[in-house]
Amino acid sequence: MNKVLAGFVLVALIISSMAIIGLADAFKVAFVTPSTINDSAWSQSMYDALVTIQNEMGKDNFQFVYSENMYVISDAAAAIRDYASQGYNLVIAHGSQYGGSLVDIAPDFPNTAFAWGSTANTFSDQGITNIFSYQPYSEQGGYVNGVLAAKLSETGMMGVIGPIETGDAKRYTEGFQAGVMATDPDAKVSVTWTGSYSDVSLSAETARTMIKAGADVLTGTSQMVIGAIGVAKKEGAIWFGYDVDQAPLAPEIVVSSVVVDWTVALRPMIAAIQSGTMGGKVYDLTLANGGLKIAVNAEGLVGKTIQAIINGDIVVGE
């Protein structure tokens, strides 16, 4: 009798544990982003982070889908609502322009978590509990680039090319200026806004004008800076990158790039959702927590100096 009971319990245990495994479906993420996932900037950095997480957790445990080029806000809102209604665990609305839509949508889907950025606003003040937010402290990375730039500049003039004077671009630029000023108070930083995230031609001509005006170190934000990088490469000016490691675009001139590693925000966010917290937290990406990284170009000045010391071509401190 006891054996039968034990057998029964065992079978029940096995079945229930199988059911639990079965219930523990893959964690499903939907990613809505304003530009293309191969933009070498904002969207690609998040896409790459999602791929990294998928590789860590395995395809059976983590799945994600994306909607790219959702620059039309009302289209993005439709996409966010659609994903939420399909039962995705987390919907990432990757743009500060999506906030207004999230406030409307999130309360209708309490079982879905939402995340957006760059911002510190989770709308918890409006009683919404299922929105996370993330914000890179771009000014920290900008500051590091600024210090290096001031050290490397021979003319004492540097140029920053940005899209419009808001958001991350503004914070990065202000950090860069602060870094330069702290290092060389006599240096001059010229800042130009092209009014567009995509005007490659204007960014190229701005870079030329800056170099003509005496700048020998340039930096900038958004996907249009590819034009400026091309000019800097041609004219031999030094370039500091932002968003993704831009060294592959011009190995000769890129010294370092400020890289945003979104996995630093995503990992704890996913863990929080799995333990039942659906929102209300702000994830900062800083140099301290590794959310911001300085990618040193191995073929650039810093990289080459390091390599020379390792090789013994440069001997220090004897």
Binding site: P34, Y71, I164
Partner: peptide, 9 residues
């Protein structure tokens, strides 16, 4: 709001 261009709106 603006995304730099008119298209977002």
């Amino acid at each position: 709001f603006t995304d730099g261009s008119a298209f977002g709106f």
